[in-house]
Amino acid sequence: MHALSLPTWWIHIASVLEWVAAIAAVQRFGLQRGEPGWRWLSLAMLPALVSAMAACTWHLFDNPPELKGLVVFQAASTLVGNVTLAIAAWNLLRLQRLSLRAPR
């Protein structure tokens, strides 16, 4: 726990909690609009949350070399998160364009 200052810990924890709140907000927004694409976006946000939690875990144990694999896992989950978010955003755009073309 000594690797990070108390204000830095506060930012890390607040960021994780904000991300959880954002996932819930995106999910709720999609439900209110009746658009399932938003649900996929909220699910696509989960790997980034896992990444953040892995980073916090690594810092919690003072960044030991024995947990270097956790850093690799964190990097991989960041990559997966970025890819899933890009796909989910593209899917939202695609669904929006389809709904604009649909006859009313």
Rank of each mutant, 00 (worst) to 15 (best):
L6N: 12
A44T: 10
V16W: 00
D62M: 05
P65A: 14
T57Q: 05
S99H: 11
K68L: 06
P7K: 04
S42K: 01
G30W: 02
A44K: 06
E35M: 14
T57S: 11
L92Y: 07
M45V: 05
S5K: 04
L31V: 06
A25W: 00
L70R: 08
L93G: 10
A75T: 08
G34M: 12
C56R: 06
R97G: 05
L60E: 03
W10P: 00
A55H: 01
A76D: 03
W90I: 02
L31F: 05
L85E: 11
L31C: 03
G37E: 03
W38T: 04
A88S: 13
T84S: 15
P47Q: 14
P65T: 12
L4V: 01
T57M: 08
G81L: 04
A3W: 01
M53K: 08
A52W: 00
L79S: 14
A52G: 04
W10K: 04
R97W: 13
L43E: 10
I13D: 02
T84L: 15
I13K: 02
A44L: 07
L46Y: 08
P36I: 05
L100R: 11
S99M: 06
L92P: 09
R28S: 08
G37F: 03
F73A: 15
V50D: 00
R39Q: 14
I13H: 06
H59Q: 12
V20Y: 04
A48S: 12
V80E: 05
V16D: 00
G34P: 09
T57V: 04
A86E: 07
S51N: 07
G81A: 07
R97E: 15
V83W: 15
V80A: 15
